[in-house]
Simulated assay, not measured.
Amino acid sequence: MPQRRSTEVRPADDTPVMRQFRSAKEQHPDALVFFRMGDFYELFYDDAVIASRALELTLTSRNKNSADEIPMAGLPHHAASGYVQRLLEQGFKVAICEQMADPKTVKGIVPREVVRVVSPGLTYDDNGLTPGQNHWVVALGELTFAALDFTTGELLAATVESREALLAELVRFDPKEIVLEPEVGQDLVGAIATLRPRTSRRIAARAFADELPGLDSVVAAAEAETIQPSVAARAAAAALVAVLRT
Rank of each mutant, 00 (worst) to 15 (best):
G121S: 13
G91Y: 04
P103Q: 02
E154L: 13
K93R: 12
L87W: 00
V118H: 01
G108A: 05
L87Y: 07
E154V: 11
G91V: 04
A95I: 02
L148V: 05
G132Y: 09
T123G: 13
D149N: 15
L88S: 06
E98Q: 00
G91P: 02
V114E: 01
G128S: 11
G121I: 03
M100H: 00
Q133T: 15
K107A: 13
A101W: 00
V106L: 11
L148I: 08
V110D: 03
D149R: 15
T105S: 15
A139S: 05
T151I: 05
I109G: 13
E154H: 13
K104T: 09
S119N: 01
L122H: 15
Y124P: 06
K104L: 10
F92G: 00
T152R: 14
P131A: 09
P103T: 01
G128D: 12
V138G: 07
V118L: 02
E142M: 03
T123R: 06
V94G: 09
C97M: 03
G128P: 12
L155N: 03
V110A: 04
L87C: 09
R112I: 06
A147P: 06
Q133C: 10
N134T: 11
T144E: 15
T152A: 14
I96H: 06
V118M: 10
N127Q: 15
K93S: 04
V106A: 05
L122I: 11
T123E: 10
T144N: 13
D125S: 05
W136P: 07
L143T: 06
D102R: 06
V118N: 00
P131R: 07
Q90G: 08
G141S: 03
E142K: 12
N127C: 12
L122G: 04
Q90P: 07
V118T: 10
Y124K: 14
K93H: 10
F145R: 08
F145H: 08
V110M: 10
G108T: 11
S119M: 08
T123L: 11
E142D: 13
N127M: 15
F150K: 09
T151Y: 02
D125R: 04
G108H: 07
H135L: 04
P131G: 09
V115L: 07
P120H: 15
P120C: 13
F92H: 09
E89L: 08
E113L: 07
D125F: 01
D125P: 02
A146G: 03
D125V: 05
L88T: 03
T152S: 15
T130V: 15
L88D: 01
G132L: 07
V138W: 03
N127V: 09
P120G: 02
A101G: 06
V115K: 10
L122T: 07
P131Y: 12
L88C: 07
R116T: 06
E142A: 15
W136H: 07
T130Q: 14
D125Q: 14
Y124D: 08
P131W: 06
E142T: 14
T152Y: 12
W136T: 02
G132M: 05
E98R: 02
F150L: 15
C97F: 01
L155H: 12
V110H: 06
V117R: 02
L148T: 01
T151E: 14
L140F: 08
